[in-house]
Computed example of a mutant assay.
Amino acid sequence: MYKVPGSGVAVGTGVGSLAVTGADVTWWITAGVVLLVAGALLLHATRKRRRAVSVKAE
């Protein structure tokens, strides 16, 4: 593992190290938010469909 001189932070140990290396994490944050929203929408749609099917079965 490579350490940035004078920082005491090892590269590859998390977001802090990405900031030290100057890596752009905006795309990762955006992708994470999009995936969370998509997952929430799919979960809502699935639960709504299951609820509708169970009501018809009764």
Rank of each mutant, 00 (worst) to 15 (best):
M1V: 05
M1F: 14
M1W: 13
K3W: 12
K3H: 11
K3V: 15
V4F: 09
V4C: 13
V4P: 00
V4K: 15
V4S: 11
P5L: 09
P5S: 13
P5W: 14
G6C: 03
S7K: 06
S7R: 06
G8T: 10
G8N: 10
V9F: 03
V9I: 14
A10T: 15
V11K: 06
V11M: 14
V11Q: 07
V11A: 12
G12R: 11
G12C: 12
T13P: 05
T13G: 09
T13M: 08
G14P: 07
V15P: 00
V15C: 03
G16R: 15
G16L: 10
G16T: 09
G16I: 10
G16H: 11
S17I: 01
L18C: 10
L18G: 02
A19I: 10
V20R: 01
T21Y: 05
T21M: 15
G22L: 06
G22C: 09
G22W: 05
A23L: 12
D24H: 08
D24R: 12
D24P: 07
D24S: 14
D24F: 08
V25P: 01
V25G: 01
V25H: 02
V25S: 09
T26F: 08
T26L: 11
T26Q: 12
W27P: 06
W27Q: 10
W27L: 12
W27A: 15
W28F: 09
I29L: 09
I29G: 01
I29C: 01
I29W: 03
T30W: 03
A31Y: 01
A31C: 08
A31N: 05
G32P: 03
V33M: 02
V33A: 04
V33W: 01
V34P: 01
V34A: 15
L35G: 02
L35C: 11
L35K: 05
L35S: 04
L36I: 07
L36E: 04
L36C: 14
L36S: 10
V37C: 07
V37G: 02
V37M: 02
V37R: 04
A38P: 00
A38M: 12
A38W: 05
A38K: 02
A38C: 14
A38T: 09
A40R: 00
A40G: 01
A40N: 01
L41N: 02
L41H: 02
L41V: 12
L42I: 08
L43D: 13
L43Q: 08
H44E: 00
H44T: 10
H44S: 04
A45N: 07
A45Q: 15
A45T: 07
T46F: 11
R47E: 05
K48C: 04
R49L: 05
R50F: 06
R50N: 11
R50V: 02
R50C: 08
R50A: 13
A52S: 14
A52M: 03
V53E: 08
V53C: 02
S54Q: 09
V55E: 11
K56Q: 15
K56E: 13
A57Y: 03
A57M: 02
A57C: 02
A57F: 01
E58A: 09
E58Y: 10
E58P: 00
E58N: 12
E58V: 07
